[in-house]
């Protein structure tokens, strides 16, 4: 991995520019110099050591705009952020904003991840302009620690990302923008761009497309979930089948109470074609008594 070389020094400034205007230019928050990279930027650990090793400062940036590029929802894009969300919701008395989420953030799942639900603020604007306005407001206010945003890709330009990056810096907040994978081709002012793709059961492949201070890197794999094996389904259905057998015995001895046989029929249907895909489940007839 390319790391910023210590030989890379700031050139001494030889310019006709008045010193004051140069100073104002250097104070611009969107401008950074290579020399500043010696000092690691403030970061939150992501909870995944494989990922932290490649992120500048060893984690998610504390302030700024990060982009997650993904083709489909459900690859684990929020599970990879979950340790960060949990840490921020527990440690900071600020909002975690969900701006224009594509579906409903499901409270029991977030609670099961030990995330403090009191900090969640879901904002559902009606138009793209309102969404960008809301995101800028949450950024500038300084009362948000993290914003997760889904914006209209067709109306989002490099100028918007520049404004969002600027606002996030101003409010000391991390904005995480979720965009489709083809947005990687467009220009963006985000300081971190990650492409996410599924990589096997419970695994997520992360390609860093842009980061501060060094080159892109690809092929990082993180385990976002303990993997499930399809066998588990059959173990469970087998368990149900044995219960059915017991229930049938009971039904013979005690005819008053009819046993509920419904799950066993799903189980039998899956059993009918073991090993292969589970497609024949459609063919199961409803159970009536």
């Amino acid at each position: 991995m390319a790391t910023p070389s210590s030989a890379f020094r700031e050139p001494s400034v030889q310019s006709e520019l008045p010193a004051r205007s140069l100073q104002t230019l250097l104070e611009h928050p969107a401008l950074w110099r290579a020399g500043q990279l010696q000092r690691a930027p403030a970061a939150h650990p992501s909870g995944f050591p494989e990922l932290d090793a490649h992120l500048p400062g060893g984690g998610w940036p504390r302030a700024g705009l990060a982009e997650c590029l993904l083709d489909t929802t459900g690859v684990g894009e929020l599970r990879v952020l979950a340790p960060l969300i949990r840490a921020l919701s527990r440690s900071e008395a600020r909002w975690i904003a969900w701006i224009n989420p594509p579906f409903t953030p499901y409270a029991p799942a977030l609670a099961a991840l030990d995330i403090d639900l009191e900090r969640m603020l879901v904002i559902s604007p009606r138009t793209h302009r309102e969404a960008v306005w809301a995101l800028e407001q949450t950024s500038r206010s300084g009362s948000c620690s993290l914003a997760l945003a889904w914006l209209d890709e067709r109306q989002l330009g490099p100028r918007d990302t520049r404004r969002l990056q600027f606002a996030a810096q101003q409010g000391q907040m991390l904005t995480c923008l979720f965009r489709p994978a083809q947005a990687a081709a467009t220009q963006s002012m985000a300081e971190l761009r990650l492409a996410l793709a599924p990589a096997g059961p419970g695994r997520l492949r992360i390609d860093i497309r842009k980061r501060r201070g060094s080159w892109p890197v690809s092929g990082i794999e993180v385990q976002v979930e303990t993997p499930d094996s399809p066998e588990a389904v059959y173990v469970q259905l087998d368990h149900w089948r044995r219960q059915r057998a017991a229930a049938v015995t009971d039904a013979v001895t005690d005819a008053k109470e009819p046993a509920d046989l419904a799950p066993v029929d799903t189980a039998t249907a899956l059993d009918a074609s073991p090993g292969v895909s589970n497609s024949p489940v459609d063919a199961v007839a409803p159970v009536t008594h």
Binding site: A107, L110, A111, L117, V122, S124, P125
Partner: peptide
């Protein structure tokens, strides 16, 4: 347009 969520 702004809401929070609770588990029940």
């Amino acid at each position: 347009t702004c809401w929070s969520i609770r588990a029940r």
